[in-house]
Amino acid sequence: MIYSRFIEEAVRWRFLDQTITEARDGFEDMALGALDVLIGKEVTAARQPAA
């Protein structure tokens, strides 16, 4: 049914929005430079081949 797909998509977007808000709130006290370093380290780790 078309309504159920619409509702599912709306719920997914709402969940994503809440997750992003929680993540931003969790890092709001961190200095911008420190956050950049943390993100860089995590991106590098994620790009490493699995052992």
Rank of each mutant, 00 (worst) to 15 (best):
G26E: 08
I39Q: 14
T21A: 06
F27E: 12
I20L: 13
T19V: 11
A10P: 00
S4I: 08
G33N: 13
E42A: 03
G26Y: 06
R5Y: 12
R14F: 11
T19G: 05
D36I: 02
D29C: 02
T19I: 07
K41P: 00
Y3E: 14
E42K: 14
A51Q: 06
T19A: 10
I7E: 14
G33S: 15
T44G: 03
R12F: 10
A51P: 06
D17S: 04
L32F: 10
F6R: 07
F15R: 09
D17A: 02
F15Q: 10
E8K: 11
S4E: 14
D17P: 00
A31Y: 02
A23T: 13
D36P: 00
D17C: 08
K41A: 02
L35Q: 12
A31S: 09
L32N: 13
A50P: 02
E8V: 02
F27Y: 12
Q18Y: 10
M30H: 07
D36G: 02
D25K: 15
E28Y: 01
E28S: 13
I20S: 11
A34I: 03
A31F: 01
F15N: 08
L35D: 01
T21M: 02
A10S: 08
Q48T: 05
D36R: 06
M1F: 11
V43G: 01
P49F: 07
D25P: 00
R24G: 05
G26N: 13
S4N: 07
R5N: 04
L16R: 07
T44W: 08
T21Y: 03
D36V: 04
Y3Q: 15
A31E: 15
Y3F: 14
F27P: 00
D29H: 10
A46S: 10
L35E: 03
K41M: 12
D29W: 01
E22K: 04
I20D: 11
D17R: 03
R14Q: 13
A23E: 12
P49R: 10
A34F: 01
V11S: 05
G40F: 02
T19M: 14
A23I: 08
R12P: 00
A31W: 01
A23D: 06
T44R: 11
V43A: 11
E42G: 03
V37Q: 02
L32P: 01
E22Q: 10
I7N: 04
E8R: 10
A46K: 13
G26D: 12
W13P: 01
A10I: 08
E9F: 03
